[in-house]
Design a protein around this nucleic acid. Sequence first.
RNA 1: GGCGGCAUAGCCAAGUGGCUAAGGCAGCGGUCUGCAAAACCGUUAUUCCCCGGUUCAAGUCCGGGUGCCGCCUCCA
Length: 483
Amino acid sequence: MRVFNTLTRKKEEFTPLREGRVGMYVCGITAYDVCHVGHARSAVVFDVVSRYLRSRGYDVTYVKNFTDVDDKIIERANREQTGIAEIAERFIAEHNQDMEALGVEPPTVTPRATEHIAGMIRLVETLLAKGLAYRVDGDVYFAVDKFPGYGRLSGRGLEDMLAGARVDVNEKKRNPLDFVLWKASKQGEPWWESPWGQGRPGWHLECSVMSQRYLGDSFDIHGGGEDLVFPHHDNEIAQSEAATGKPLARYWLHNGFVRVNSEKMSKSLGNFFTIREILKQYRPEVLRLFLLASHYRSPVDFSDAALAEARQGMERFYSTLKALRDQAAHGQAPPEGSATEREIVDHLAGLRGRFCEAMDDDFNTARAIGYLFDTVRLLNAALADKKAVLSRQVLTQAEQSLREIGAVLGLFGEEPDVYLRRDREAEAQKRGIDPAEVEALIAERRASREAKAWQRADEIRQGLAARGVVLKDSPAGTTWSIP
RNA sequence: GGCGGCAUAGCCAAGUGGCUAAGGCAGCGGUCUGCAAAACCGUUAUUCCCCGGUUCAAGUCCGGGUGCCGCCUCCA
């Protein structure tokens, strides 16, 4: 298995510190607002990473934190005349709902910053004792020039950064690039007792403490969005490694951004779509397929057209899954294996290998999904071939293979009938189509067809088609969909 | 200003120097169908932004250019 390591900017062979086990830490959200599609990407990407590692037999400990004390939380709490705990609690609950809806498996541990204040104070004390930090008026800062190799992850040296115009002006800092470990709380801000007075932790500190607490001084994978590379992850490295003298994480993985019209989706730009807003319009797996159809490090452009395309793809998968199941239920189960059956069995036997080959190459979900579509095409061809009746055994095996591999991507988890029904309901609602009316027209058309009144039957079909409703006649009756 | 990334068909997108450049969506032709839809078959990039170089061989490596994006401030 090879993974791209931000630290070296290369794909490297993945070797965990302890055989058979993987410790993974991913930076989670600051709980001050509902999650948008950008958060969904990070969550889905690392969900798939942990699912895949587990499917390869690793015992994965996945830690994802919640930042529940921070300027923005304080700001919102003040605005709403409530406490930061209430705000954090509320948005953590909202986050958890969104993740569950998206089919994201809960991480092994989901620690919160405020549960680890004591550990943070200890880490600051260690850094002070080692002379890597200094105190000013109740604040404690990390002295970046005392840590050789500061900025290694983002690939910038101190000189590079100082040359940049945009550095924080703060009189208290010895070096403009120093960052706060602990800050004295102002009037009305939440605070904890510390050796430096009443204060609160700096943002970077919590991840250093919580990763160490749950995964040890050194662990295998540290992940997050690419915007966290600098300064957050560089600062984590500085704090942790300065304190322990050991490398923090072996592999640093960063997912690319979700864009809107070629711009980063973000709160500050205001160009974001919340997860719940999208899930009103599309099945959760549509969003997952959209996100996983590109490599996790590439940017993806979010748009309704892109989601609509992913929806078509999911429709294709579920239609095949449904066809496999329907035919297995009604099939006559011929005993002898035909040439078509042998071809399918051979193909399925190799599918897992191809899937792993793609995923082993830095979690190439896009390629993996391509292989799944190959399988679908082969199966559809066999299903469409009336001469080649497939045995129940092969049909079931095909369905199981698809589901088993899909599960690693968090796809194909629904019953095909349920998926297709719900998908249609959402689409009907979106377009203001009344299902009862459609059913009534279908009944009228059936009567017309029975009377061979083709003109009226076609009129109904075309009328519905103009509104996006497509009818499909089969020996069992007429069904409808909104492609 | 400093640092970094990306550029592959109408669109999305994979592509680890070497057989015919995955896959999806959309389109077109056909099979099937009363007509359709779905599905299937066929078709859609002599070429991978431009220029130069390395190599027997480059979408893939190197240099230059152009365009887009990100980080350097909270940010997944």
